[in-house]
Amino acid sequence: MSNGYPTPYPSGPTGTPSNGEVALDQPLYGASFGQSIKRFFTKYATFSGRASRSEYWWAALFNAIIVGVLYTVFIVLLIGSIDPVTGEADSMGFVLPMLLLGLYGLAVIVPNIAITVRRLHDANFSGLLYLLVLVPGVGGLVLLVLALMPSSPEGARYDADGGAAAHANAFGGQTGYPGAPTGGFAGQNAPQGYQQPGTQQDFGQPGGPTRR
């Protein structure tokens, strides 16, 4: 089982573990919150490959929650440390949450960059576009828009194997990872209208075998 979808095959296609889970080197479409967080940290510094929109945005929500909680604790302790007489704050009262906030920010810098690069790949954009964050103002906004773009089958070229496994899944073996979007995403579903060579549907079709 994966994502609540029944596993359609006992052993899985190329690049898919036999337990029906989507391989880590493939994007997980329809990922749950827990699956996304697990992949976010498991693929800590993996810049090749792709990340689905669900993987990316669940991870973004998780990071926002953690930062929000730490910042709230910081504000509460800061206010609580203010001397009602002098109006001065006791710096020791909020050093710990500030320290935790800084350490967490440093800890997730690499995986945040990595998952953004993989999200760009999934939409068939170069990961170098992440450098747009260096452009003041509009750079971050443009990157946000790119992260919202839908998945593209051509993005498989950014996989570690150059999309070879994805191509094999789409055209040579069993297809249809649990949770994959329809429409022929490389590595998870065969393109719409594609028929395996040699089947009855191929006869009489352009490019198909000829009856004799």
Rank of each mutant, 00 (worst) to 15 (best):
N3P: 04
N3C: 08
T7V: 06
P8F: 00
Y9M: 06
P10L: 00
E21N: 15
L24D: 09
Q26E: 14
Q26C: 07
P27F: 01
P27S: 13
L28Y: 07
Y29T: 06
Q35Y: 08
Q35S: 14
S36L: 13
F40H: 12
A45N: 12
G49V: 04
G49T: 06
G49D: 09
R50W: 05
A51Q: 10
R53P: 06
W58E: 08
A59K: 04
F62A: 15
A64N: 06
G68T: 01
V69C: 03
V76L: 14
I79R: 08
I79L: 08
G80E: 09
V85I: 13
A89S: 04
M92W: 10
G93D: 05
F94A: 12
L96S: 10
P97S: 05
Y104L: 12
G105D: 10
G105A: 11
N112Q: 14
I115M: 13
V117L: 12
R119K: 10
L120W: 13
N124Y: 02
F125V: 08
S126T: 15
G127L: 11
G127Q: 11
L129I: 09
Y130K: 07
L134W: 05
L134P: 01
P136V: 00
G137F: 06
G137Q: 09
G137H: 04
G137V: 04
V138M: 13
G139Q: 05
G139C: 09
G139H: 05
L144T: 08
L146E: 07
P153G: 11
G155D: 06
A156E: 07
Y158P: 12
D159N: 13
A160R: 15
G162W: 06
G163S: 06
G163H: 02
N169V: 09
P178R: 13
T182E: 13
G183K: 12
F185K: 12
A186D: 03
A186K: 06
Q188S: 02
A190C: 03
A190S: 05
Y194P: 02
Q196T: 00
Q196D: 02
G198P: 00
T199V: 00
Q200W: 04
Q200T: 03
Q201N: 01
D202N: 14
G204A: 07
T210W: 08
R211Q: 14
